[in-house]
Computed example of a mutant assay.
Amino acid sequence: MAGGLEDAQAPHYVGHRERLRDRFRDKGADSLADYELLELVLFRFMPRRDTKPVAKALIEKFGTFAEVLGAQPERLMEVKGVGESIATDLKVLQAVALRFSIGAAVQRPILSAWSAVLKHCRAAMAFEVDEQFRILFLDKKNRLISDEVQQRGTVDHTPVYPREVVKRALQLGASGLILVHNHPSGDPTPSRADIEMTRFIVEAGQKLGLVVHDHIIVGREGHASFKALGLLA
Rank of each mutant, 00 (worst) to 15 (best):
M1F: 02
A2K: 10
A2S: 09
G3M: 11
G3K: 06
G3S: 08
L5T: 07
P11I: 10
Y13I: 01
V14Y: 13
V14W: 12
E18S: 08
R21Q: 12
D22L: 10
D22I: 09
R23Q: 07
F24W: 11
R25S: 07
D26F: 05
D30Y: 09
A33G: 09
A33F: 08
D34Y: 08
D34M: 09
E39L: 03
E39A: 04
F45A: 13
M46C: 14
T51R: 02
K52T: 11
V54G: 05
A55W: 02
A57P: 01
A57F: 01
E60C: 07
E60F: 07
K61L: 10
F62D: 01
T64F: 06
F65R: 13
V68M: 08
G70D: 04
G70N: 11
A71L: 05
P73L: 06
E74K: 07
R75P: 00
M77F: 09
E78D: 14
V79L: 02
V79A: 03
V82T: 01
E84A: 13
E84Q: 14
T88P: 04
L90Y: 04
L90A: 07
K91T: 08
K91P: 04
V92P: 05
Q94F: 06
Q94W: 15
A95P: 08
A97G: 08
G103C: 13
Q107E: 15
P109G: 13
L111M: 12
L111N: 10
W114P: 01
W114G: 05
K119Q: 14
A123L: 14
A123K: 02
M125Y: 11
F127H: 09
V129L: 12
Q132A: 12
F133R: 01
F133M: 05
R134T: 00
I135P: 03
F137E: 00
D139C: 06
D139Y: 13
N142F: 12
S146R: 11
D147M: 02
Q150N: 12
R152Q: 15
R152V: 14
R152C: 04
T154H: 03
T154M: 04
V160C: 03
Y161T: 08
P162D: 07
V165N: 03
V165M: 01
R168M: 09
A169V: 02
L170R: 15
Q171A: 14
Q171L: 14
Q171D: 15
L172F: 13
S175F: 13
G176Q: 00
L177Y: 04
V180L: 12
V180S: 00
V180A: 03
H181E: 04
N182I: 05
H183N: 06
S185C: 14
S185K: 05
T189S: 15
S191H: 08
I195F: 10
E196T: 14
M197L: 13
I201G: 01
V202R: 12
A204R: 01
A204G: 05
G209F: 00
I217A: 00
E221Y: 06
G222D: 02
H223E: 13
K227R: 15
L231E: 07
L231W: 03
L231Y: 11
L232V: 00
A233G: 11
